[in-house]
Design a protein around this nucleic acid. Structure first.
Lengths: 200, 200
DNA sequence: CCGATAACCATACGACGGTATGGCAACGCC
DNA sequence: GGCGTTGCCATACCGTCGTATGGTTATCGG
């Protein structure tokens, strides 16, 4: 059912995610989804939490893989962050859903809390990455990990908006896609200038 | 009427901005707002355009003032950008409205176009500021103005989200407010390291 | 002064969405 | 084998919202 909600919102917006539509999309009856979710808000909240959990899970897996392959932290971050960018169809869908809930969070404390928490998790993960970088020599000692995390997290979010608005084709003489990648790359290179001294 | 729409959305969300509510808030009858706006979408679009125009106008005025006072470009930018941040009540209102329309833009091409245009204007203004900075010595010649503009614009947007979520009080041991200011300050200082050679 | 256009209003209409209700089938415990 | 609990459904209900309609007042050019 959560998948149905996700599909509907991703494809046609929140208004399309009516109880009847969700039931139809999921192949059940309206009564059944009522049986599992006491209200529509419950349903939406569940779908939202599920999606954010998915996203965080994906990046966690990437981090794990990267660490296993002994990649430098900068490289890991560079692979993780575009996970939250609307670069292909499924992620454009996720972006759409996230924006919808972002707006809904303005008047729904529960949803706002989910958003707040995931944002905090993202920041914390980046901060940890930077701290680790200081440990292993990729990051200069003077760098403020918390501040760097705030910056990078904000950058990802902001660039995601631009990427959604201007997909593929050019803005000016460069594609937004390339610009976003370039900006991220440049900031990561500035924040992680060194080489890891642990891995040969 | 546009003001009424703005107030309602800013205070109670999009759902509160019903035709009847808008009419009541504005002190008119439902029929009258129908008289001026052929549909609700029209009304919302108008209110949205009005708000973005307001914002851009404010920024433009600040730029003008700054130039008149012969402030360095970095200082001007530093004063302009928080205009788009939800730091006080009216700007929190604007932020809320902008998020609502941001979501609505996902399924409404006209609104999306307005968002796209204003984002482009913001980017262009920043890019021009950077270019001017190169001219007058505040910015290093090697800096890519377009790229810097994309970065700064994205940064503002992303930080705005954080600021709305975590107003005033602390996250970790620093207020988000301070963190955002610090991040912006640091990036501006990195991108505008020099002094203007025109003004004594 | 008059007639038309614009400002303005109260209300009716039609549609739709979330929830409530009552009921049917199936399964498992006594 | 009965019986209650659970899974599941169709549909009725009620509120609300956007819009349509018909009419009333005011404004103003000729």
């Amino acid at each position: 059912m959560a998948e149905a909600v996700h599909r509907l919102i991703a494809h046609d917006g929140l208004d399309a995610a009516t109880m009847a539509a969700v039931a139809r999309e999921a192949g059940f009856s309206v009564g059944l989804v009522q049986h599992y979710f006491t209200s529509k808000d419950d349903l939406l909240l569940f779908a939202y939490e599920r999606m954010t959990a998915d996203q965080l899970g994906r990046v966690a897996r990437l981090v794990e893989e990267g660490e296993a392959a002994q990649q430098p932290i900068r490289a890991i971050l560079k692979r993780c962050m575009p996970q939250l960018w609307p670069l292909d169809a499924p992620r454009r869908g996720e972006y759409r859903v996230s924006r919808v809930f972002h707006a809904r969070a303005l008047d729904n404390p529960t949803i706002a809390e989910v958003g707040r928490r995931t944002a905090a998790v993202v920041r914390a993960q980046i901060a940890r990455a930077v701290a680790n970088g200081k440990e292993c020599g990729e990051v200069e000692k003077g760098t403020d990990a918390e501040l760097a995390a705030v910056e990078l997290a904000a950058l990802i979010e902001g660039l995601a908006d631009d990427l959604y608005r201007e997909p593929g084709p050019p803005v000016g003489e460069r594609t937004m896609d390339g610009a976003a990648q370039a900006v991220l790359e440049s900031r990561l290179r500035a924040l992680f200038p060194g080489e890891c001294r642990h891995y040969a």
